[in-house]
């Protein structure tokens, strides 16, 4: 599908003739910044209307993966992939102009920093309206009306008044709601949310998550949610991919992952989260010693081996990708070793 036929009525036919391609399909994605490999062969896919969480510590390549999908990597970054498709369309083949026609229209993104992600010099209404007029044309008035509807939809009271306000007049939670509403202006199929609640108060976090889950259900949005918070994953994800040092080390449907985490890193992450009723009061919470290493290009073996309790000499060699149904693990340990 090229951008030229986007004017034709419904680009997304409700009854695809054959099985439609996944909304997002990433295979062997690699991103390098100079001597640092930020993403090293990450693969996963996202179906229409699905919520896929990518979890991991800071610096493990989650955000870079998201930015690579959107084509928003900083200058100097190198992106390679065996496959990078959005609704069957090869993102690698698109020019910047074609890509920018997709961005904000069919795929939208919200960020971790609601305080700085809106332009301080323009009103909320102006920033929301411009996405719509850019991709759909029409009058500014019509765009502002849609903006007001969406502000109401994301739970902002007095939306008409908010349109005339500047970002600095809003709280962090409100700004993130504005970002979400702005992302929805053109009815995207894919919403990438990069740690959307990290910078917010706990109570506001819960509201925003509930909102995302609701929107997902009502609008059939595919959501790629990046987070380091396993509590969030458990609540809203259909599927989880755990990233470590630029690789997806484990990927599974949410229930399966929580029931039988297989990668030592996943198990380590889970041990760091207190579960009411499971963790005894006197018991210390788990922690993973060390931090995510910087991986130079050409690195081989398991990147987690220096921090892993189960490391063995063969971990320095090629690591097998093992699959049991929908559950994939990148580890030499046999599936179900921990059971």
């Amino acid at each position: 599908m090229s951008t030229s036929d986007r004017g034709a009525p419904p680009a997304r036919s409700p009854n695809p003739p054959r099985q439609s391609p996944p909304l997002l399909e990433i295979e062997e994605l690699r991103v390098t910044f100079g001597r640092t490999a930020a993403v090293r062969g990450a693969s996963f896919s996202l179906e229409k209307g699905e919520t896929h969480c990518v979890v991991g510590e800071s610096g493990c390549g989650k955000s870079v993966t998201a930015l690579a999908v959107m084509g928003l990597l900083a200058r100097g970054a190198r992106r390679e992939a065996a496959r990078l498709e959005f609704a069957g369309q090869d993102l690698r083949a698109l020019s910047e102009r074609q890509l920018s026609a997709l961005r904000g229209d069919r795929m939208a993104m919200i960020f971790q920093e609601p305080m700085t992600s809106l332009n301080p010099a323009y009103t909320v209404g102006s920033q929301m309206a411009e996405v719509f007029t850019r991709h759909r044309g029409g009058s500014r008035r019509a765009a502002l009306d849609r903006a007001a509807d969406l502000l109401a939809r994301v739970g902002i009271t007095a939306p008409g008044m908010r349109l005339g306000q500047f970002p600095h007049q809003l709280s962090g939670g409100l700004r993130q709601r504005v970002m979400i509403a702005m992302a929805l202006m053109c009815d995207p199929e894919l919403l990438i949310a990069d740690e959307p609640t990290t910078a917010l108060d706990v109570t506001v976090q819960a509201q925003i998550l509930r909102l995302l889950a609701e929107l997902q259900r009502d609008l059939g949005l595919g959501i790629l949610l990046i987070t380091h918070d396993l509590g969030i994953v458990a609540r809203i994800a259909d599927r989880v991919s755990v990233m470590y040092a630029g690789e997806v080390v484990e990927s599974a449907p949410t229930a399966a992952l929580f029931a039988a985490p297989s990668h030592p890193y996943t198990r380590g992450l889970l041990a760091c989260v207190p579960v009411p009723g499971k963790v005894k009061r006197e018991e210390a919470l788990g922690s993973i010693p060390g931090m995510v290493p910087r991986i130079p290009p050409g690195f081989t073996g398991c990147a987690f081996r220096d921090r892993c309790d189960h490391a063995a000499p063969e971990c320095a060699g090629a690591v097998p990708r093992q699959q049991a149904g929908a559950h994939e693990v990148l580890c030499r340990l046999p599936p179900g070793w921990a059971a």
Partner: peptide, 11 residues
């Protein structure tokens, strides 16, 4: 960040 947002909006 707001320029990143502007790019993400496809402007």
């Amino acid at each position: 960040d707001y320029i990143r947002t502007a790019r993400a909006k496809g402007l």
